[in-house]
């Protein structure tokens, strides 16, 4: 499944109340490391289909969500399971780092 955008108004429903773990990518169009992360997150959303949902939150347009989770550096990817943060990756660190993060919610 491809990644999709989540906004402040549906963050609760799409992220926190999701039955499946959700990896939230906080990004902005002007951030070049975010653009490097983009194709990799797209790939992972297919590879981990049905096990993790990957969504994107544009920090320029969704200040509530980004400030609620103290996102002051982008890209920041936060992993949620049953509404709780279970892991966080700050900055773009490549595919392996994202996979290791996803495994925190999908293994065991």
């Amino acid at each position: 499944m491809a990644t999709f955008s989540v906004e402040d108004h549906d963050f609760d429903e799409k992220v926190l109340k999701n039955k499946i773990p959700v990896l939230v990518d906080f990004w902005a169009p002007w951030c070049s490391p975010c653009r490097m992360a983009e194709p990799i997150l797209e790939e992972l959303s297919d590879e981990y289909e049905n096990r993790v949902v990957i969504v994107k939150v544009n920090v320029d347009e969704n200040k509530n969500s980004s400030s609620k989770y103290s996102v002051l550096s982008i890209p920041t990817t936060v992993l949620f399971k049953e509404g709780k943060e279970v892991g966080r990756q700050i900055g773009f660190a490549g595919k392996v780092a994202y996979e290791n993060l996803i495994k925190k919610a999908t293994v065991g």
């Binding site: 975010c34 920090v59 103290s70 002051l72 550096s73 982008i74």
Partner: peptide
């Protein structure tokens, strides 16, 4: 506090401040 106010990339993060 990395990514929670500590950064090394102003071009990435400046608009958040």
């Amino acid at each position: 506090l990395l990514g929670r106010g500590v950064s090394s990339c102003a071009p990435c993060d400046a608009p958040l401040f």
